[in-house]
Amino acid sequence: MTTATDSTTPVRVCTLEDLEVERGRAALLDGQQVALFLLSDGTVLAVDNLDPFSGANVISRGIVGSRGGVPTVASPLHKQIFDLRTGECIETHGKPPAALRVWPVAIDDGVVYVRMPESVGS
């Protein structure tokens, strides 16, 4: 478990070797659950693990895919589809719009760092 003390400082979360391609992993940062995804092109993206439709922390267990070249994750509960780059829900299945918060990610020498989004740390 990693705890951040300053929202402007990137927090070491894991190594790239800890992640599996197109499989989510959850991490806890300052009491917030984050879902991390390693894409097939080597990009790592992070969004809230909290599904805004069900209220459960399950996004890291979602199905990774793409829509028109956009990396996506489908909630494992109700199958709403989210853009992993922006957090926007692109398929709501008739529910009101919602989005996942996006967490900035950096990779340095095989180590994955996540920075708390401004809306969380303020």
Rank of each mutant, 00 (worst) to 15 (best):
P104S: 09
L38Y: 04
A56S: 15
T43P: 03
S75I: 01
V120T: 13
F82W: 04
V13L: 13
L84P: 04
G42M: 04
L39R: 11
D30V: 00
Q80P: 02
G68M: 05
C14A: 12
W103L: 05
L45F: 02
S40Q: 07
V114I: 14
Y113P: 10
S7W: 11
L39F: 10
D109H: 14
P96Q: 07
G55R: 11
E17Y: 04
M116W: 03
E118C: 03
C14P: 06
Y113G: 12
R12D: 05
G62M: 07
R85C: 12
A27D: 11
R67E: 11
L36M: 14
T3D: 00
Q33N: 13
I63H: 11
L29C: 11
H93S: 08
V70W: 04
V34Y: 06
L16G: 06
T2S: 14
V120N: 04
L45K: 08
D83F: 10
V102Q: 00
V47G: 10
D41V: 11
E118H: 13
R25I: 01
T5R: 14
S75C: 03
I107D: 00
D48P: 11
I90N: 07
Y113Q: 09
L39H: 10
R12P: 03
N57D: 14
E17V: 10
W103T: 02
V47P: 03
E91H: 13
I107F: 00
D109A: 15
P52Q: 05
S66I: 01
E20N: 13
V102A: 09
Q80W: 02
L28S: 14
T8P: 05
V13M: 03
S66A: 15
R101F: 01
P52H: 01
N57E: 15
I107L: 01
L100W: 10
R101I: 15
E118W: 06
T3N: 00
V102H: 02
R67F: 04
V70P: 04
D6Y: 08
L16K: 11
S119H: 06
H93K: 07
S119Q: 11
Q33W: 12
L36R: 02
T9W: 01
D109F: 07
A35H: 00
P10G: 10
N57H: 14
G65I: 05
Q80Y: 03
L45T: 05
I63T: 13
T92Y: 06
L39T: 05
G55I: 11
G69I: 09
I90W: 10
H93C: 06
P97F: 06
E20T: 15
G87Q: 06
V44I: 10
C89D: 01
N57F: 13
I107Q: 02
L29H: 07
R67T: 05
M1T: 10
F37K: 01
D109E: 15
D30H: 14
S122L: 10
Q80D: 00
I81H: 03
E22Q: 13
L77A: 09
